[in-house]
Amino acid sequence: MPFGSNGKSLARTLAGLLIQSGDAVLLALKVEVYGRLPSQDAHGQDVALPGRNPFSVVNSRHDNADKVMIGTLGWNALVTLAVILTNGKVVVGPHNPDFYPHRSSHVWVRKNGSEDSFNNLERQTRSKFHVQSTFETYAAACVEFNFYKTMPATLKTLWEYKINGVWSGVKAAAFVFYQLYTNHKLVKTEVERCVADAFAHNDRGCEILDAVNRMLAVMVDEEKVPVSKDVSKCLTEIAGRLQSEISDVNRGKVTKAVEKRIRMILEEPT
């Protein structure tokens, strides 16, 4: 299937697939699909190269994470939420140290996966925020896990996990990306107010907050998407500094929510 005209269908088809690697079987609850061309994925890499089989599966080291990737000639798919059926291990986010696929791993795709039974999710944005294609929606999840508490935390959703409590550098940075995704713009006075609130709660010396301050120095009063290249560069730095925070949320709150949901499914009468 070509990526350009079928990206959303591809995501829905692959949500719920099984990857068999030896005795281990991985069930993908959420996948993100990326085209190979720079115009389709601003930060894409050919990390899952096609082989002789319809799908080629690899475990690729990228951005300090072991990522389970499915590759074809036209697109890559990244498994971002999964369960290893043979031992029940829940894997959330792109880092997967427990499942080791290889190029001869078998991929089982749901027969009715192309049906529009899953709601689309906005894919995670990692870099190059001045490129419009970064905001396209080519991700899907199994309907049982299609609410934010069982979704891998991303730059877009981190604000939902940080919305309560006192202000901090992390919360201010999460607010920045929340504004980008929901309003498609950044208002300088609003970001300044967040930074002031974080300082008021003694979050000084915070590297993330320092990065937000550097962004304020190059912002105009209102930055609309696509933002200026100087602001985009600052956003990329802030996103990188948020990686560990996102990983902590995925290993903690999200993993527990997924495990709870799986237990509920197993206990439901059939």
Rank of each mutant, 00 (worst) to 15 (best):
G165M: 08
T86K: 08
A173P: 10
N250F: 10
P50C: 12
V79D: 12
A172Q: 07
G165H: 05
E223S: 08
T13M: 03
L81H: 12
E192N: 07
T13Q: 03
F199K: 11
T13D: 01
G88H: 07
K256R: 06
D197Q: 13
G22D: 03
S117P: 01
S127L: 11
A174Q: 09
G7C: 07
V231A: 02
L180V: 03
L158C: 10
T86Q: 10
Y34W: 06
P54C: 13
C194S: 09
L18K: 05
K185V: 05
V187I: 15
I246S: 05
A239G: 14
Q179H: 04
Y178R: 02
V33C: 06
G7N: 10
G51N: 13
T154R: 06
S114M: 10
Y138S: 15
P269L: 12
V109I: 13
F175D: 10
L186S: 00
G7K: 10
L155C: 11
A141G: 13
V254A: 02
N76S: 15
L29H: 10
E192Q: 14
T157Q: 03
E207H: 01
H102E: 15
G88S: 08
Y138P: 04
T236K: 06
T13G: 00
H184Q: 06
E160I: 08
D46S: 12
H43K: 05
N59V: 02
A77H: 07
F99L: 11
Q40L: 09
A257Q: 00
R110C: 05
N146R: 08
S133I: 14
G165D: 07
V170F: 07
L14N: 01
V195I: 14
I246D: 06
